[in-house]
Amino acid sequence: MLEILIDNRNGKVWNITSLVPSLTYKTKRSGAASSLDLTVIKGSQYQSASFEVNSGDVIRLRHDDRNIFYGYVFEINTGKDESVSIKAYDQIRYLLANDTYVFRDVTASQIVKRIADDFDMKTGLLADTEYKIPSMIEDNKKLLDIIYKALDLTLIHKGGNYMFFDDYGELSVRNIQDMKVDFVIGDYSLMYDYGLKRSIDGDTYNRIKIYQDNKQTGKRDIHILQDSANIAKWGRLQLYQQADEKMNTAQINEQLNQLMALKNREQKSISIDAIGDLRVRAGCFIPVVIKELGINQYFLVDDCSHKFDADTHTMKLELRVV
């Protein structure tokens, strides 16, 4: 059973579960805060005359005593009818601010911790991401982008894939291998529709070009790795980026190989419509079985949207191969 609470942050906490006929809870693996959109029926016989909701109020969503969402009201829409639309985000929304940071020899988790401390944000489990980033100089950059850059560098250099998310009011970093769910989605299990997309349009590259400014010679050193066979098939898809000035040739070659392994492939994504299960959120690693597509493997959940409407709970998942 759902439980929805609004905390006015003035000592009053309202249980509005019976006033909410529908809600949508969305999570994304990267780039955005989790959100909760809900409709509240105003003037209900179950509603206290002193009930109110204001920007900044805390909303908590639980299901069967399990913590689901902890966030803050950012939008309130009212009209002549009896419904009030409310949108809330978790604390990752506050990481859309810009600032300047210089980091040296720190891990991605240490970067998360420092930013969280600077902005008075709570942290929870921060996995040891191990790889120490030699340097990151971020001038007037979005805080969330800084964090994801650190996680991307960790993936490229260490091979570990980590998820950053808000875990019921605590910023957390976890290895996706620790976010596996223990049930299958697919044929005869929750799923009632699916779609498959294959693309080289987004994050596919068959030529990696890395440059490094050489202070000793005053010239720019260029390092290239390419897959000529895939260039013949797809055309040249080039990724061009800068190497850290402290990296040596062996480290740059390692980065070239890592990037080629990650990027030089057709991207496959699957969308699934299924009966809802709140154990699934973006960042989960979930086994999928679809015989018609010959699929029986784990997928990473990129986007997850749970919708509650009356007595119906459904979810839409956007999945991708890791």
Rank of each mutant, 00 (worst) to 15 (best):
A229G: 11
K122T: 15
E138R: 11
L196F: 15
I272C: 08
D193V: 06
A49D: 14
E82M: 06
T204L: 01
K233W: 02
Y25W: 14
M247E: 15
Y101V: 08
D309C: 05
F164I: 03
M1K: 09
I86W: 02
V301R: 04
I208T: 05
K197D: 15
V322L: 11
A250W: 00
I208M: 08
R29Q: 13
I41F: 13
I252E: 06
M247G: 05
L278W: 00
A310G: 07
T39W: 03
S228M: 09
E254V: 01
D152L: 09
Y131D: 09
S109V: 02
L126T: 05
L96Y: 09
S199A: 14
Y205K: 04
L317K: 00
L36E: 04
R279P: 05
Y211D: 05
I270A: 07
I156K: 11
A282T: 07
K291Y: 03
K291A: 12
G169V: 05
L96V: 03
S34W: 04
S109Y: 02
Y211S: 15
T249I: 12
I68S: 07
S269A: 08
S271H: 01
P134W: 07
L225R: 14
Y298N: 14
D99C: 08
T78W: 04
V40G: 08
Y148I: 04
S228E: 15
D311L: 04
V288G: 04
A32E: 15
H313I: 08
N98G: 10
H306K: 05
T249A: 12
V13Y: 03
N15P: 02
Q177S: 14
L23V: 05
A250L: 10
L61Y: 00
L5A: 07
L151K: 02
S55I: 12
A243S: 13
Y162F: 15
S18Y: 12
E266Y: 00
G195M: 05
L36C: 10
D65I: 01
I200R: 03
V106K: 14
Y168R: 06
N140M: 11
D120P: 03
S30L: 09
I272A: 07
Q258N: 11
T204A: 15
L155E: 12
R66K: 13
D152C: 01
L5E: 06
N161T: 09
N15F: 04
L155A: 10
E266W: 04
S199G: 14
K42C: 15
V40H: 01
R174N: 13
P134D: 09
G276H: 06
T314R: 09
Q216D: 15
K291L: 03
I156N: 09
I111W: 02
K149V: 09
I86E: 00
D145G: 08
I92E: 06
V322C: 08
L95M: 08
Y194E: 05
N253S: 11
E3V: 04
R281A: 12
L171R: 05
Q226L: 14
L262T: 02
C304I: 01
I295E: 00
I200Y: 05
I147N: 10
